[in-house]
Nucleic acid binder design. Sequence first.
RNA 1: GGUUCCGUAGCUCAGUUGGAUUAGAGCAACGCCCUUCUAAGGCGUGGGUCCUGGGUUCGAAUCCCAGCGGAAUCACCA
Length: 605
Amino acid sequence: MNIDDVITSSVVNAIRQLYGASVTEQQVQLQKTKKEFEGHLTLVVFPFLRLSHQKPEETAQQIGLWLQQNEPAIEKFNVIKGFLNLSISQCYWLKLINSIHADKHYGVTEATADAPLVMIEYSSPNTNKPLHLGHVRNNLLGWALSNIIKACGNRIVRTNIVNDRGIHICKSMLAWLKWGNGETPQTTGKKGDHLIGDYYVAFDKHYREEISQLIPKFLAQGLNEEDAKTKAEQEAPLIKEAHAMLVKWEQGDPEVRALWNKMNSWVYAGFDETYRALGVSFDKIYYESQTYLVGKAEVEKGLKEGLFVRHEDGSVWADLTNEGLDEKLLLRKDGTSVYMTQDIGTAKLRFQDYPIDKMIYVVGNEQNYHFQVLSLLLDRLGFKWGKDLVHFSYGMVELPNGKMKSREGTVVDADDLIAEMIRTARQTSEELGKFSDMSSQEKDKIARIVGLGALKYFLLKVDARKNMMFNPAESIDFNGNTGPFIQYTYARIRSILRKAQEEQFAVPETVAEDIEVNQKEQDLIQHLADFKTAVSQAGTEYSPSTIANYCYDLVKEYNQFYHDYSILHEENIGRKQLRLVISENVAKVVRTGMDLLGIEMPERM
RNA sequence: GGUUCCGUAGCUCAGUUGGAUUAGAGCAACGCCCUUCUAAGGCGUGGGUCCUGGGUUCGAAUCCCAGCGGAAUCACCA
């Protein structure tokens, strides 16, 4: 029932009738008519000149006339150069809005039992420090992406791989043992992930002190500056101790494992809190401590099958020179696994657990090379989706004063950021007098919805693959192309619908088909119809920003409508019904779109 | 140096299956609009070598080639 499809097939017919030639639907270029011209849809006739053997204007004229006579949806047309502007007939707009109105889940396709199964990995935190702004972008993208892919009719599994083992967590553990005095989240009142992060920082501080003390010693032995530094980094007692702890961990030392379990559980409790605040969740969580051995086994197997090679020192490598890449290390000479090995193991487990048709990894673009290699390796190891795995690569979040660097203390902590956004939302609402008649419970709820909406929209509206600038001050600006602007418009529509209900004016199931639909109403209906296209496009391009910008455009257009026309006070009953139906469907579509992005909508604000 | 990605208004970003003499938003600046459905709003003014140069085409911000600028990566880190 999409207008584009209807016209497209009519054009195909027209070409056949007029010129006796057949064209495919893809050759029919239909686009929205520019505002300066009369009409709704514009057909570009240049591609048909070869068939008509006539001038652009004449060809357009002929096709236009044929459509006007044979296609009921076309009321009139005009021709400018090679552009045929078509005006859609009145009754068609009403049919269109009625069909959108009747579809409660408009734009969303339910997955069937045999729909493709798509697994989406995102978040993937390390257990030695709290989540920061970069993770926030990752989590929001992963969540939005999975929603969109689901809305396109796929079955999805949201997954997370927690990097819970390795030298980094040993550093925190060691620091806690040395300087922790038995502190726990309970005794300090700190979130577990922040507590662990503090010890990681403490380790780093002491470690660097040791290094700076050792460097002069190695310089005195005649090493140059760089070598002395490297040597000091290797020889510092703290790092040696941490390595020893890692070895103990791998051997399953009960004490180390018990400490590891205890401290990780603190971190997970902290992460869960952040995830809950962000509104993201997972269907299945994998832990590297459970997958790295699988990866090692898989590499050993591959080695036996001749897929990989073992060097003289015992290390195992994949030769990817035929694919235009280098050799890639898979197992160290001491037999321990590297990042790539773990990812292979994780992939293997996932493949055993689910009949995955497609795998998407939401991981930053600094790992583009890693995923290029992983794809080749998984393919070589026989995973059917290996070759087609998608690395949903997103850009870094930059700050006005440069990149986020933990050393320089320029990291934006996720929990702090969320709290700050909510606090600012509350303050703004109070200043604007929005809270006058609300309970404190409702105030809390709206401050949270608006604050998080601002944050989420700010991060999602930008094309994921681009590096983006996060200006903390601007992000809290709720004007313009922002989440709160969209939420605000939504709340106003809901208010209108409530008032209509209060005055016993029922929004009809269908709009009577004898109403005249004016230009602005037509534009809005057309815009609503485009939502399906926006969702499917976002699904194929994996781009939540498509949905975000669609919603902004729609809401902006509705705002103009809201100011130019009365809705509740409209005298003509049919017109009032139409405008209420349009309003309700703008709200419906915007809510659906924002829901895909993981942004909540307030009934009032 | 190799590979990948990016370059659009002072700033942050849309727009790219090639389309229309004026390439769009928001922010920032200036001006107007709250006895009328929520002013977190609307309307208006100013602001552009779409990085540069070639090519393909009836037609290029969009596609191709070369160059310039920026980012990431090319670890027995994860």
